[in-house]
Design a protein around this nucleic acid. Structure first.
Length: 880
RNA sequence: GGGCGAUUAGCUCAGCUGGUAGAGCACUUGCUCGACAAGCAAGGGGUCACUGGUUCAAGUCCAGUAUCGCCCACCA
């Protein structure tokens, strides 16, 4: 046992000072690295790699608090813990950041050329990247920084390219010319998941297309009139009698005067619009399919900037939205525009830059997803992977069952360049450049998620068969936000099965989404997220961690309000001061050498140990079941209410010079012992303040971070003692209440008379040493003779009567009112119980113990009411 | 169009297996008494959105309604 430091724990508690002290210490102690040991099972969790451009958000704060909570708890609980850190190169996001910088320097990536641009991004990464991890250390999290990974590092890149190659060899990666989601600003294709759909008030334009060689016409309805320039057909439903006569004829495209065929296709819904559809195979995914079925030309009318191209006639060179205006005007002028209706539809936006997505026909690389999805689906259905909260299972399954192929090529420069080489007609897929001259590598890079979906094993060295991979795969748990369930979680499971033959983690816990007080998701663009570092500065990392966890019920979004951080700050302060009190009273006793069996514990000691045992059990159970906010609440309640408010108050007199030395030792030992337990339970939530206090008290190891998680001793649970102390507490509260109601000065000592059963009176006598100071009682009269004071305030506690005999001091009117108030409430309760017990069905069908409880309650209520009435009676008599 | 979630004290929210409605903040009153005013003590405050059902018993289970929010969907 190491001695504490009596000089520590100075007032006032200063989080900044305490929190600057321990991080390096933990690092030096090797706390963050896995510590193998005999019989120790690994516990592995990986950070969801933040973008290299990222900075700490409130969302990270929550996720990191929870992950580190679990890791620290598991570490103390004897697991060989590994928390894997790392970053994502974040193709689009990072390229955007550096391009913006270039723009401010009046240059562009095209001016620099590809190699120079990539070099500059790396330079940027070295200089500014990873800010988030420098910030994160403030929070006190414990990833093994020696294992930090970056998705573009050589080893990791090798994994990514190997995966591409293997999937290609299996026929699961293919190249094709399809309509993809195109961001005209980022200038790249996107996956379906990278498109945000926004409900928009648009219009439905009705455009008349004349039938060639007749006076007749067919009217089509469209939300995107500018694409008409690329129309290569008009389609109607084959069953639609209105249009049967037109099928096989040609329509004349207004403005451009091209003739296009009218075709019949079942995809057309006769009930929508006019039942006739313009077909633009190069600019609409549906029309693309229709075009394939009818062998229609795919006429591209826009370039990669969404500017009308040479096929757009007079509209060439116009931006798509400007073109829309001009085309609509031209149609109107020429009499082709029949009408315009308001129309709601959902418009895709680039999730990176919010530009309206353009469906764009181009050559891209895709992953065939259905075969990969199958084992990932089965894993969820068979329970080999479990989700918390469970409802996400359905979302996950639904997505996998309707999965579509994944467009993985990006027209960017920052990322893993696609490992495909071309030479004339030849094409080679290879991680290394093929031998020989004249090979040109594919210009595109891979989707960032095509690297992060390998995270749980690529961070451990895959495709090499490393010891880490052997020992730490599968990971134990994934903790992340539900917003990336498709992007990341589902794909990691697919990759896990495909390349490791096993789920990457058996459990997934989804954290709350942090929203602002108005319920809006916190985001940079809205500017509604407080600065997390400012929060840490102001309240302390411990407070932020504790509060975020305490605030987050499983499965509910979290409406964050800065003021709530006070909860954690005040709590840390409370613990600090309780520790100060205990430390001041410890004396120089060698507490570590004392064994519990050598001490004579009082009722209060037994009580706090019993409460502590419950706390240990409950906190542990709630951690195991991912009910973190409950766990936090339980420690809070135990430490503050049970330990500080009651136990320490009861222990105070026992610490004084006048107290019995043996009892003083006992009080010292128990208060220290329970405080030590609180520190252990609380450490994963509030690592800094608990470490600081623990080091200041007698302790038995290098660091609290590697101390053992408390166990609830069976012998400590004691229901009888808990009942006894509950009685004392009620008694104390009732006396305090009467004092306040009687308007007594807080310091004024008063006599108290108690009447009750012999057992109750025995108990009161036993508890008297605690009772006296807690309620400022001068003299406690146990009325065994049954006498009751003539003029007194009174109340009933579990059937026992408590009197404050204060002749001349109490206001009889107020006292009568108080008694009447109590009586009203009692009568209410009594009525409810009586009603229940009159109910034959209740008596016959309810569980016997419930019935028994109600009967007991009835008896107690009646007794209490009876005594209240007698008290009222006596007051009336007294007044005369 | 489909799915999911929410509705409990003035505010923000807990309430896990149905059995006497809770917390924090805010509010009222009183306290600088040797750990803590970032505190202590005592209080006030709720027809648990609505309607129906199951049950001896419903905030809790089921169905429906309303309002708000989220996700998914090739909604010309």
């Amino acid at each position: 046992m190491r001695p504490g430091n009596p000089e520590a724990l100075q007032q006032p508690y200063d989080p900044a000072r305490v929190e600057s002290r321990w991080y390096t210490f933990w690092e030096e102690q090797g706390v963050f690295q896995p510590r193998p040991g005999p019989g120790k099972q690994p516990f592995v969790i990986a950070i969801p790699p933040p973008n290299v451009t990222g900075s700490l958000t409130m969302g990270h704060l929550l996720g990191e608090s929870i992950r580190d909570l679990i890791v620290r708890w598991q570490r103390m609980d004897g697991r060989e813990t590994l928390y894997i850190p790392g970053m994502d190169h974040a193709g689009i996001a990072t390229q955007n950041v550096v391009e913006k910088k270039l723009k401010s320097e009046n240059t562009s990536r095209h001016d620099l050329g590809r190699d120079e641009f990539v070099r500059q991004v790396w330079e940027w990464k070295e200089q500014y990247g990873g800010l988030i991890f420098r910030q994160e250390r403030r929070l006190g999290t414990t990833p093994d920084w020696t294992r930090e990974r970056f998705t573009l590092d050589p080893g990791y890149s090798n994994a990514v390219l190997t995966v591409f190659r293997r999937l290609y060899d299996k026929g699961l990666v293919y190249r094709g010319r399809y309509i993809v989601n195109w961001c005209p600003r980022c200038h790249t294709a996107l996956s379906d998941e990278e498109v945000d759909h926004v409900e928009t008030e648009g219009s439905l334009w009705y455009i008349r297309y004349p039938i060639a060689g007749t006076e007749k016409s067919v009217t089509v309805a469209t939300t995107r009139p500018e694409t008409m320039l690329g129309d290569t057909a008009v389609a109607v439903n084959p069953k639609d009698t209105r249009y049967k006569k037109f099928v096989g004829k040609n329509a004349v495209l207004p403005l451009l005067r091209r003739e296009i065929p009218i075709v019949a296709d079942t995809m057309v819904d006769p009930k929508f619009g006019t039942g006739a559809v313009k077909v633009t195979p190069a600019h609409d995914p549906n029309d693309f399919q229709t075009g394939k079925r009818h062998n229609l030309p795919e006429l591209v009318v826009m370039d990669e900037h969404a500017v009308m191209n040479e096929n757009a006639g007079d509209f060439r060179g116009l931006d798509r939205f400007e073109a829309r205006k001009r085309i609509v005007a031209a149609l109107q002028d020429a009499g082709y525009l029949e009408k315009v209706e308001p129309h709601k539809n959902s418009v895709g936006h680039c999730s990176r830059c919010n530009t309206v997505i353009e469906p764009y026909l181009s050559w891209q690389w895709f992953v065939k997803m259905a075969p990969l999805a199958a084992p990932a689906l089965e894993a969820a259905k068979k329970g080999r992977i479990k989700f918390y909260p469970t409802r996400w299972k359905k979302v996950y399954i639904n997505w996998l069952e309707n999965i579509r192929d994944w467009c993985i090529s990006r027209q960017l420069w920052w990322g893993h360049r696609i490992p495909v080489w071309y030479r004339g007609e030849e094409m080679v897929v290879s991680v290394e450049p093929p031998p020989g001259d004249g090979w040109k590598q594919d210009e595109d890079v891979l989707d960032t998620w095509f690297s992060s979906w390998l995270w749980p094993f690529a961070t451990l060295g895959w495709p090499e068969q490393t010891p880490d991979l052997e020992r730490y795969y599968p990971n134990s748990l994934m903790v992340t936000g539900s917003d990336i369930i498709f992007f990341w979680v589902a794909r990691m499971v697919m990759a896990g099965y495909e390349f490791m033959g096993e789920t990457p983690f058996p459990h997934v816990y989804f954290t709350s989404i942090v929203r602002d007080a108005k319920g809006r998701k916190m985001s940079k663009s809205l500017g509604n997220s407080p600065d997390p570092l400012a929060m840490i500065d102001k309240y302390g990392a411990d407070a932020v961690r504790f509060t975020m966890i305490h605030l987050t019920p499983p499965g509910q979004d979290l409406l964050f309000d800065e003021k709530r951080l006070e909860t954690g700050k005040f709590f840390a302060n409370k613990i600090w001061n309780a520790a100060r009190l205990v430390q001041m009273r410890l004396g120089d006793e060698d507490l570590g050498s004392i064994r519990e069996s050598q001490l004579t514990l009082t009722l209060a000691d037994h009580w706090i140990l019993s409460r502590f045992a419950h706390a240990v059990k409950d906190v542990t159970r709630n951690l195991k079941t991912y009910r973190f906010h409950e766990a936090a609440g339980q420690i809070y309640h135990f430490a503050w209410n049970d330990y500080c408010d009651w136990y320490l108050e009861m222990a105070k007199p026992r610490w004084t010079e006048e107290a019995d030395p043996d009892d003083r030792r006992t009080a010292r030992w128990v208060s220290w012992r329970v405080l030590d337990g609180i520190l252990r339970l609380l450490h994963p939530f509030m690592p800094y303040v608990t470490e600081e206090i623990w080091q200041a008290l007698p302790h038995d190891g290098e660091s609290l971070a590697t101390a053992s998680w408390p166990r609830a001793k069976k012998a400590w649970f004691d229901a009888d003692v808990e009942r006894d102390i509950a009685f004392l507490q009620e008694l104390v509260v009732s006396v305090r209440n009467m004092r306040v109601e009687a308007g007594l000065a807080p310091g004024r000592k008063v006599p108290v008379v108690v009447r009750g059963t012999p057992e109750q009176l025995d108990l009161v006598e036993k508890l008297a040493p605690q009772l006296l100071p807690l309620a400022k009682i001068e003299e406690l009269i146990v009325a065994r003779d049954g006498a009751r004071p003539a003029v007194a305030a009174s109340s009933v506690v579990q059937g026992a009567e408590v009197f404050l005999p204060l002749e001349g001091l109490i206001d009889l009117g107020e006292e009568r009112e108080r008694l009447a108030r109590d009586a009203v409430k009692l009568l209410d309760d009594l009525e409810g119980v009586k009603k229940k017990l009159r109910n034959q069905d209740f008596l016959a069908k309810a569980r016997p113990d419930v019935v028994e409880k109600e009967k007991l309650r009835l008896a107690q209520l009646e007794e209490t009411l009876d005594k209240l009435k007698r008290a009222q009676e006596s007051l009336r008599v007294t007044q005369r």
